[in-house]
Design a binder for these strands. Structure first.
Lengths: 224, 224
DNA sequence: TGGACGACTGTCAATACATGCAGCTGTCCG
DNA sequence: CGGACAGCTGCATGTATTGACAGTCGTCCA
């Protein structure tokens, strides 16, 4: 199931979620329409259809407020109340192997959609412009394949990296979100690439240190 | 509040509960009617009224499926391992006022240092370069004052904003982390500025949408 | 013995809602 | 360039749903 939403669709989905959480019932098209300032209910209808097409919600035909969130599966056997932090990943080992689990974080994984399977500590600034900074904990859902544009956790041999995925035929490019880094190019005919999962969320516990995000490379901001 | 229900009323309530749990939305009068084999929707209506009168449910007038369970789920709240999400903040109101709490997120607040008091949904791209994107939930600790360089939640009248704090004498500057936005300059001798708290962490549940973080302004560098 | 109340039946009007059709403006991509 | 698609406006139709009115029957209770 492809969960890649446009920003607008994400907003709509968030609104539906919040409405359900707060009102106890899903919103009507009209309620979405006024909440977003649309002038036509069709705008809301279209968005709902798109969300339904992408599988994140289900529409019950004919029923008023017939919007159902597809809670979506869960995976690794767990209390559902905490997530493992995956540390150093040994070559060859499955990423969720016992040995590589560093600790457990008490976070309700149902907060994320879809639900993640583990956390990974981000290293380096290569995804800076996607709001992913070093030290952040990336919530990752295990998936074997990726869609173009998704942010994935990929493994090449011993190296585990977080990048935006782009595939054209046999050529995969792992794109950083930072102009100071170069894309990684992989020819699947010649090299292996393992998709370990897809980024579905992020947790930053360390606060926001220095006056500027202390770039390791390059200037921030100025860019201009 | 009198919670003593007749057996029949208990059945109705159970049905409503099950319907919500299973379908995701509350039932209509008609659905209750057919489920119980009534021949008149008024039977269902009467039962709902009785349940509302006894306080176990709440009826939203005019809204279809406007049945809300008042089953004190909020008990799960302030146990120290969940955080309130603060929504729209009305002028003058304390930011943690009951009305502005949109929902509770099950996150162990001890994950953060220092421990936050609430979550705030981020709007706009002004803190992009600090890795704070729209839709993110900012974990905030209530503090009345700030140190230079800290990222704070500040309020000026009705506007609540997240910015980096910098003070020189009576002049406070609220610095965005995005060259497309201008700093806000406040002369404390002339204007009020309320520090609502300090950002101590961040939670992103919405995933990572578009191929690029969909800038509202300006280029996101990568574009190319 | 006359309420007050629970548990219904039956009917109806006024909205609340879902959903279809037609058409517009962009952007991305082959 | 043209097509596919995201995001919209505007209008229209029919059904879903709420909520009010008017009764019936039985039980418990002062």
């Amino acid at each position: 199931m492809d969960f890649t939403l446009t920003p607008r669709q994400q907003q709509i989905l968030d609104f539906v979620r919040r409405h359900i959480a707060k009102q106890g019932i899903p919103p009507t098209r009209a309620e979405i329409t006024t909440a977003f300032g649309f002038r036509s209910v069709t705008a809301a209808e279209d968005h709902l259809r798109a969300l339904a097409r992408k599988g994140v919600i289900e529409l019950l035909p004919g029923a008023s407020r017939g919007i159902r969130l597809t809670g979506d599966e869960d995976a690794a056997a767990n209390d559902g109340d905490s997530l493992p932090l995956v540390g150093r990943v040994a070559a060859g080992n499955p990423i969720l192997a016992q040995e590589s689990v560093e600790s457990w974080y008490k976070i309700d994984r149902k907060l994320f959609h879809p639900q993640p399977d583990f956390l990974l500590r981000v290293q380096g600034w290569s995804m800076r412009d996607a709001g992913i900074l070093p030290g952040d904990l990336l919530a990752v859902k295990r998936v074997p394949t990726a869609q173009n544009g998704e942010i994935v956790v990929a493994r090449m041999g011993e190296d585990v990296t977080v990048k935006r995925f782009e595939r054209r035929g046999d050529i995969v490019r792992l794109l950083p979100a930072n102009p100071d880094f170069a894309p990684i190019r992989i020819d699947l005919a010649q090299q292996d690439l393992v998709i370990e999962g897809r980024a579905v969320g992020l947790l930053r516990t360390g606060g926001f240190a220095g006056p500027s995000p202390a770039p390791l490379h390059a200037d921030m901001s100025s860019a201009a």
